[in-house]
């Protein structure tokens, strides 16, 4: 049972690292919020505490820092969980959260909303809606296809993705090059800039609805990686479990990209880095990858908002940091058992 203890220890450590990263993330920024101030402000909502902090700090905390940190953690957690889940149920290590068109759909929805000069909240809702719609379309088309249903799903995912990408390109073509086009382009690069508490509450429900079943079903996902027939002979209704996992993973992906824009790499790289840490068993992989994803995106977002005076979009940074780190790991470490 040494293996069990080792992996549990890794998951606990990831949890502690996440908490520390969150605390440090409050410190950094133009207006640092130190831990005593953070605790003071938060507890003052429950019990009366004489403010020892500047009023400005409280505004920064609730309007800027807190929503941003919360979204970075949630989006990182969701994208990695969705990536790991898709990899498992498609028995494909190269699967990523955008495999069924969730990202392409969200991009189209966001571009369409920007074209109509919508508010940032409407952009989020439009992106979320189109993301779900796209995956639903992919699923329905794959049901019509003859033959192997996993392959049909992936192929229709690719097709519908490219269709919606073309749609996004067309919107860019007709968009006003002075304000709309840059807004669309910037949205597509992925950023948590301007995160609001209303966005956090909007995505929290679909994220919870998706993440909890993914955690609960994680042992069954192991059996699915053996292939449909084998899973069924072991008593697992593979089609049913796969459908539930796909719905949950899509829900959290759609919620994530609707607030963050296109953030590549996290959903592919973080599950694999976690596999190197705790192995392929979803029992440990799923919680570990959720924590790891949250830590990673929070750190990257800290860099994104603090490195230069203008923000570097997250999508660019995740690739710049993620890709070399991934190459280092696949060339240096062996699989752990």
């Amino acid at each position: 049972m040494k293996q069990f203890n080792r992996n549990t220890l890794i998951i606990l450590s990831l949890g502690i690292i996440l908490i520390l990263t969150i605390i440090v993330s409050f410190w950094i920024g133009r207006y640092p919020i130190y831990t005593n101030e953070l605790m003071g402000i938060l507890f003052s909502k429950l019990i009366p505490i004489e403010p020892f902090w500047a009023a400005k700090i409280e505004t920064v905390l609730f309007n800027v820092r807190l929503p941003r940190i919360a979204l970075a953690c949630l989006v990182g957690c969701c994208l990695s969980a969705a990536g790991a889940a898709y990899q498992g149920v498609f028995q494909n290590p190269m699967a990523a959260p955008d495999i069924l068109g969730a990202s392409a759909g969200a991009a189209f929805g966001a571009a369409l909303a920007i074209l109509h000069y919508s508010s940032s909240f409407m952009i989020t809702i439009s992106a979320f809606g189109f993301s779900l719609l796209t995956v639903a379309l992919v699923y329905l088309i794959s049901k019509k296809a003859k033959g192997k249903n996993i392959l049909a799903l992936i192929l229709s995912g690719i097709m519908i993705s490219s269709l919606f990408s073309a749609g996004t390109s067309f919107i860019k073509l007709i968009a006003d090059p002075n304000d709309q086009l840059p807004a669309i382009t910037y949205w597509l690069m992925g950023s948590l800039n301007g995160a609001k508490i209303s966005e956090v509450t909007f995505v929290l429900i679909p994220m919870a609805l998706g993440l909890i079943p993914l955690l609960l079903l994680r042992w069954r996902m192991n059996v699915l990686t053996m292939g449909d027939d084998e899973a069924r002979t072991m008593g697992v209704n593979s089609n049913q479990i796969r459908l539930i996992v796909i719905i949950c993973a899509t829900l959290v992906t759609a919620a994530s990209v609707s607030v963050s824009g296109m953030i590549g790499w996290v959903g592919l790289v973080i599950p694999h880095l976690t596999r190197k840490l705790v192995g392929n068993n979803f029992n440990h992989l799923m919680p570990a990858t959720m924590l790891f994803g949250a830590i990673f995106l929070l750190l990257v977002d800290d860099v994104s908002r603090n490195l230069f005076t203008t923000e570097i979009p997250l999508g660019i940074l995740t690739a710049f940091i993620g890709a070399p780190f991934f190459i280092y790991l696949i060339t240096r470490t062996e699989e752990i058992y």
Partner: peptide, 10 residues
Amino acid sequence: YPSFNYSVFD
């Protein structure tokens, strides 16, 4: 050979 390597125990 499954797509993902598991320990014999798992």
